[in-house]
Simulated scan of single mutants.
Amino acid sequence: MTAEFMGPPWQADWTKEAEDNRNALPLQARSLVDAARAELVTAKDPYFRGIDKAADLPAGMSVEPVQSTRPGGAHIIYFDHGRGWLRYVFTPRTADPQIVIDECIWL
């Protein structure tokens, strides 16, 4: 049996703090957070690498690395035209690839 790289939908886990922050938001903001999370878990590459890869994101959403010198490190998906964001790390393992969301902010 060959181990194949799994594809979307990806497993997404929240740190306790990020989940608590999400749960404390008003319903409208939680809907925006859930839409951003849905974009992450269904993307072929949750880091949206390549030219115009983020063009497929809905209006008001964008993705960038936290540090430009670490393109494989933590990333941020902005939503609600930059009013909110999720910071996350994607681990593309052959077995059990996952996204870990460690920050959820909406202003």
Rank of each mutant, 00 (worst) to 15 (best):
L27F: 02
M6E: 08
D102K: 06
V41S: 08
G84C: 10
V41M: 08
W85A: 02
V100Q: 12
K16M: 05
K44Y: 14
A35S: 10
P97G: 08
N21Y: 02
F79S: 11
E17R: 14
K44H: 13
T15A: 09
N21K: 06
A36R: 02
D96V: 08
A3C: 10
V100I: 10
Q98F: 05
L40D: 01
K53E: 08
W106N: 06
R83W: 01
R22I: 02
P92G: 09
G73I: 12
F90E: 02
V63C: 04
L27Q: 04
A36F: 03
G50D: 07
A59H: 05
V89S: 06
Q98E: 01
K53C: 06
A36D: 06
V63L: 04
G7M: 06
P92C: 06
R70Y: 07
W10V: 12
L86Y: 05
D80L: 05
L57Y: 11
D56Q: 13
A55M: 08
H75C: 01
R22M: 05
R87C: 03
K16L: 07
D52I: 11
E64A: 07
A3Y: 07
E17C: 04
F79C: 08
E4I: 13
M6A: 15
A29S: 13
F5P: 14
D102C: 08
E17I: 11
P9T: 14
H81I: 03
L107R: 14
Y47N: 15
V100T: 11
A74D: 11
S31L: 14
F79V: 13
V33C: 06
M1Y: 01
H81L: 11
A43M: 08
E39V: 12
Q98A: 07
D45C: 09
E39P: 04
P26E: 10
K53M: 06
V41N: 03
I77V: 10
L27H: 04
T2I: 09
S68Y: 00
P8A: 15
R22W: 01
A95T: 13
R49K: 02
P92Q: 07
H81N: 14
G60D: 13
A54T: 09
D102T: 11
H81S: 15
W106G: 05
R87D: 07
M61P: 12
L86S: 10
A43S: 14
T91H: 02
P58M: 12
V63Q: 01
Y47A: 12
Q98H: 09
Q98N: 10
D34C: 08
R22D: 00
K44P: 00
R30S: 10
D20N: 01
G82W: 03
R93G: 05
D96F: 10
P9L: 15
K53G: 03
D34P: 02
R37L: 13
R37K: 14
D45P: 05
Y78V: 07
P58T: 11
F90L: 01
E39T: 14
Q98S: 07
L32S: 12
W10M: 13
W106C: 08
V63R: 02
